[in-house]
Amino acid sequence: MLPPQACKKMQSWIRSRHLICSGNFFVLETLGYSTVERFGECVASVGGTLIAVDPVDKIWMGNHRQVILYRARASLNTQFLHDLKQYWVKYGSLYTRFDERCVF
């Protein structure tokens, strides 16, 4: 994946409240592991490092189905860090869409 495409994808995750900035780290929370894999590709293409992927919780979808919530942490030490951080300040949120502290 090319760096401009990776930045656009990460910006879409910021707008949808899947990706937040925490210090110099970016944290992605999602229900699909394929999204975590795409996040790893995006981070690698902009020169960052995927630090950890943890299964955080199980969320009920309907009455009979549970899905796993994954949290991926990445570190960016390039010029893309500043650009994405500024984008997150403008369009992002302090909480992800799966955060239990924030009820809308």
Rank of each mutant, 00 (worst) to 15 (best):
A52K: 15
S22P: 02
T49L: 14
R65D: 07
T35R: 06
S16D: 15
R97L: 10
L28Y: 04
G62L: 05
V89Y: 10
T49P: 01
L2Y: 15
G62R: 02
F25N: 02
F39K: 05
T78L: 07
V103L: 09
L69A: 11
L19P: 04
K85M: 09
R65V: 11
L50E: 08
N63Y: 09
M61A: 05
V56D: 12
A6C: 11
H18V: 00
E100D: 01
D54K: 07
S22I: 09
F26S: 07
S45A: 14
A74K: 08
A74Q: 06
V67P: 01
S75D: 12
E100L: 09
P55I: 04
G40Q: 06
D54Q: 06
S22W: 04
R71T: 06
L81V: 06
F104M: 01
S12L: 14
N63E: 14
L81W: 07
Q11N: 14
V27L: 08
K8D: 15
Y87K: 02
Q5S: 10
G47M: 09
R17I: 07
G92W: 01
I68K: 12
E37M: 14
P55M: 05
T30A: 12
A72N: 07
C21I: 01
Y95K: 08
F98K: 02
V46C: 02
I68N: 08
G62F: 02
T35A: 10
D99T: 00
L94M: 13
S22A: 10
C42V: 08
Q79G: 11
Y70K: 03
V36G: 03
Q11P: 05
I20E: 03
V43A: 02
D54W: 00
N24L: 07
W13I: 05
Q66I: 06
S75L: 15
L81E: 09
L76Y: 03
M61T: 06
A44F: 07
W60A: 14
A52P: 00
F39L: 04
W88Q: 11
K58E: 14
T78K: 09
S45C: 08
K85Q: 12
L28G: 03
V53C: 13
D99L: 00
W60L: 13
L31K: 06
S93G: 13
R101N: 00
R15G: 04
G32C: 01
R97Y: 02
K8I: 15
K9P: 03
F80W: 04
V89E: 14
T30N: 11
M10T: 03
Q5W: 02
V67A: 12
S12I: 09
S12A: 14
A6P: 09
D99K: 00
Y87L: 01
T96D: 07
D54C: 00
D83G: 02
N24S: 11
K58G: 05
A74V: 08
H64D: 15
L31A: 09
N77A: 06
R17V: 07
F104N: 00
H64M: 13
V27Q: 03
T49N: 10
T30P: 05
K85A: 09
E41P: 00
A74N: 07
F98R: 03
E37W: 11
